[in-house]
Simulated assay, not measured.
Amino acid sequence: MSVTLPPRGRGTGSNPFNRFAPTLSVAEDDGWYQEVPPTRATEVRIETAKSIIARNQSPDLPFDRSINPYRGCEHGCIYCYARPSHAYWDMSPGIDFETRLIAKTNAAALLEQQLSKPGYQCAPIALGANTDPYQPIEREHRLTRQILEVLLRYRHPLTIVTKGSLVLRDLDLLSQLAEQRLVKVMISLTTLDDELKRVLEPRAAAPSARLRAIRVLRENRIPVGVLCSPMIPMINDSELESLLEAARDAGARSASYMLVRLPREVAPLFEEWLQAHYPQRAAHVMSIIRQCRGGEVYDSRFGKRFSGEGAFAQLLAQRFAVAMRRLGLEKRGDVALDCSRFCPPGGQMALL
């Protein structure tokens, strides 16, 4: 297998073709030398979205609606299950996913419109289910903060999953939401090894920064937990207990985990990454993943896709359960979000 090393600060150097494209172009070496640029700049396209709340009916998810203010993610996590979605926008799930991004600049205004509809029924909104709401471009575009401001005005509950320490910028809004039991935050923590983080999640916050985010959120009385995801056999699964313990010591009160998922174009990108960074164990890693997925690299069945099956998956689940009991962590957290407070500005809250 040929290996393409990623540009500096990126998760992959490959750009596999868009599966919806009518033609396929293949690069051939014609003998002329061309210098490959050492970096790849991030491009952000502005989009006027038509809708902002995405719905799902998955029994595996604890929410039925979500908001993603961005398409693509600059964090560049090689394992990201959202990579294949970039093909819908005529871009590659490879390096395009982490360098050619789309910002939904009308997200906040559109959210107000949807929340103000007479028939809207309130339920917690998951912020950042497909890409990270606190990826680096949020510093400039501030779409996540604008969405939080709308949800606070409407007293609408939400959950946040992020591996970005930029979440601490919005402590003022999160604190007000937490006072009314309207928010939970889950910090995604994949490894405590800085070198592994550098190649696995190039532009995500360092492990120490994520632990600090947990600590500061807890100190500000914002419900916070840890998501150990994904667990990758023979890469970071040995860290499961230490991840949970470090997060608990930082202030997390709830935790969950997921086994690595490799849908569509993610599988070949991940295998290429293994060959580039862990060539001696690449075959072993993929063998265990297949054992957890019924002999395939991916299993999309509900009830199986997050946890897998087989001896390795069962052992991982047992280790997680034992660590949770030992550390006193909860699966769902200690605060239930309050939907009864929802009220559009100028409206009247329910009397009962």
Rank of each mutant, 00 (worst) to 15 (best):
M1F: 11
T4C: 07
N15G: 13
R19I: 14
E43T: 15
R45I: 14
R45S: 12
T48L: 14
I53R: 05
P59M: 05
I67M: 03
C77F: 04
C80F: 01
Y81W: 13
D96P: 06
D96W: 06
A103T: 02
K104Q: 07
N106Q: 07
L111K: 06
Q113N: 08
Q114K: 11
S116V: 00
Q121G: 03
Q121L: 12
T131D: 04
I137K: 00
E140V: 12
R142F: 01
I147H: 01
R153S: 09
G164R: 04
G164P: 07
L168M: 11
V183K: 07
K184C: 08
V185C: 08
V185H: 01
L189I: 11
T191E: 05
D193M: 04
P202G: 07
S208V: 09
A213Y: 02
R221E: 13
S229F: 02
S229H: 00
I232S: 06
D237A: 15
E241W: 07
A246S: 15
L262W: 04
E265H: 13
A267R: 12
Q275F: 08
Y278D: 06
A282R: 13
H284G: 10
S287F: 09
S300M: 08
R301V: 09
K304L: 15
S307D: 07
R319D: 04
C343N: 09
P344I: 01
L352Y: 11
